[in-house]
Design a protein around this nucleic acid. Structure first.
Lengths: 373, 373
DNA sequence: GTTGAAAATGGTAACGATTGCGTAAATAAA
DNA sequence: TTTATTTACGCAATCGTTACCATTTTCAAC
């Protein structure tokens, strides 16, 4: 029996709705109800199935637009066991190399209807494991990862790989898991940079690299050594140093510089093999009043967008980071969308670019070496 | 009737599994089946409900660990209408200001069990709308956003706000939507920078700012103007310029510099109000051979981590970006987790820091102004 | 020995979407 | 007219989880 509601009734409804409503998008059910058809019909109409009459389709599509219907990706993920999202694990976003990688990945992923979930490890193994497990539990369809410096045990990734999750490694890769990999020619990059320093007349080139356990470190140091040998010099351990946290911990870099500059024979050039190490060295040298390139020449791997604004302008080995991201995501999507499991994997190697600037170009003063061309 | 399978049978099974298996995590059903109980019991046991006997709980928990059970967040999202994830919209990741913001946000979000989905607009309105709708459809529980320069119409955000989606604005905010906001004291930042330039003896300070439609631009230019007035100078339009894409389009900056340096009375100092503009101006000035600070002093908003490595070392107004991120996410989580709708919103204003370096410190040569302490 | 309440567990319907199967009506072939 | 075949749609299961509503068992009180 109907009784006129108390005036507060309306207010109450309003409050309750305001609180509970949170966020209600139109569903397939709403369309079905509005049109007096079943949800299956709506679903099929929207997917343009042949078993729905043109008129019904028309009706459904119009109604969907009217209600601003958007399929619910969460429901789809649950049903289809695919999320159309891919996971990305990088060291840190606040590093141009990685943010450019991200841009490369996203540009392609978005085009293909995938979204990218980005996580950072800050070089921590624990964070990496957490990140990877988080992404897996979120149901990503694939994973793109550059290993953290602390990662020596790969079981967290092997488990996923064994279960069939597509994975692509880039930058810091591993031999222990057989899948697609994307890197630059690290050997070539440091070979050329070293050779350049030699041509500038350097006699004692020190190298400061990332953790010696990282794949990139091995290649980059190898390139350095080979360049020395090719020019008749023997690499010495006292000039080869490793920064375990890749320059992320500034004191590591400072200590290495301290060591180098208390040597009897000080270096006359330094090759650095990662972004943070490069800027860390530059900072330390400036603080100590060591002149570049007069006292020591400097060249290093870096993807900064302002190498020419530094003092001195920096000679860098630049990685085609955007292209690397594009390559990585292309390979990953190829794996994800392939029907048959892939057995042949590719290690795609891109070319770094040596950009020569003042930090390595020694003005000929006491220089007695003609230094080629 | 059983017949011995053909030898290939096993191989076939293997292939099919290999192909289809993709990725099968243990579910609550597996536990239920293994233990011969119902899924409801398992669910309750895992959530430590009082209506499950201690022995059963024990059994379930052990089994869950044995099977490495992890609740499926996707199923949970669907059921609970919350995803424990928050959406972030920034201009671009490859900008220290934003990557530091991200770190601030993530540090707190992860602690509280939320994950962050990052999207970039690259200053494009269309991208912003896409990003926001993508995040909404992904069922984020809340949104943190810094508006793109092209965004004049806010209906995409108003719609979500009206539906009750918690939103926090930071950096580039708007008055049109009533919610929490986090900014730095932009007025103060540029006031102090301008005052500093004045104290260094500058007579004609130009300002190059972002789009004049952005909230930050208004405040920053206002601070600049007020500082001039306080020191008895009248702002002139010929010294006030706007880069619509905030320095993202380099030619904009070049043109502005061109204009400024073809004036009859050239500026003797420049204040830049965003990261990209600051480095863009530095680059342009260097290319044109204009000496800093001798020909023109330079100070600008920037969050670069290497201001002291630039040539010259850069005077910057630095924003406490990490803290801004932390503040934004704290406010957002507070909104998300509040039972009652929030009616009182906060505009939290943090203090920027003026770091003085050589780019603005004019060596007293022809300088006749004592310029105080 | 009923009756009652409490304790422990099961069944089932959601959440939003897809899909195989069933089936009514309409048309075509016999 | 009868039998196939097509067309166009509905029903119900499914994905993993939770929550409401039974139902069963246990044990105590009368």
């Amino acid at each position: 029996m109907w009784t006129k509601p108390h005036p507060y009734f309306y207010l109450y409804i309003y409050l309750v709705k305001d609180d509970a409503m949170k966020f209600e998008a139109a569903t397939i059910k709403d369309i079905a109800k509005a049109l007096g058809v079943s949800t299956s019909t709506v679903s099929r109409a929207l997917r343009d199935s042949h078993e729905i009459s043109p008129e019904t389709k028309q009706l459904v599509i119009e109604c969907a637009e009217r209600l601003n219907y958007k399929p619910n990706p969460i429901a789809l993920s649950l049903k289809e066991k695919r999320s159309r999202s891919i996971g990305l694990v990088v060291t840190e976003i606040a590093n141009n190399f990685f943010s450019q990688i991200i841009n490369g990945i996203e540009s392609i992923a978005y085009d293909k209807g995938y979204n990218v979930i980005i996580t950072q490890t800050f070089e921590s193994y624990d964070r990496e494991v957490m990140d990877v497990q988080f992404l897996a539990s979120r149901g990503v369809d694939g994973l793109i990862i550059s290993l953290s410096t602390e990662t020596h045990d790969l079981s967290h990734l092997k488990a996923l790989h064994d279960r069939g999750l597509p994975i692509v490694f880039f930058d810091r890769i591993t031999d222990e898991i057989n899948t697609h990999k994307v890197i630059v020619d690290n050997y070539k990059g440091s070979f050329e940079a070293t050779e350049h320093l030699l041509q500038m007349g350097a006699k004692r080139i020190a190298v400061i690299s990332s953790s010696e356990f990282l794949s990139i470190t091995k290649d980059r140091v190898a390139g350095y050594k080979e360049a020395l040998k090719m020019h008749g010099m023997e690499p010495t351990d006292e000039l080869i140093h490793y920064s375990y946290y890749s320059g992320m911990v500034f004191s590591e870099v400072e200590e290495i510089i301290n060591k180098l500059f208390t040597l009897k024979h000080k270096p006359d050039a330094i090759l650095t093999t990662s972004d943070k190490i490069t800027t860390g060295v530059l900072k330390t040298l400036k603080r100590r009043g060591i002149r570049i390139p007069d006292d020591v020449a400097l060249a290093g791997f870096s993807n900064t967008d302002i190498p020419e604004l530094l003092d001195p302008p920096l000679t860098i080995v630049q990685q085609p980071s955007r292209e690397m991201g594009e390559a990585a995501v292309s390979l990953l999507l190829q794996m994800i969308e392939s029907k048959r499991p892939i057995r042949d994997f590719e290690k795609r190697m891109l070319s770094p670019e040596l950009q020569i600037r003042a930090s390595s170009v020694v003005k000929k003063k006491a220089g007695k070496k003609p230094s080629g061309k």
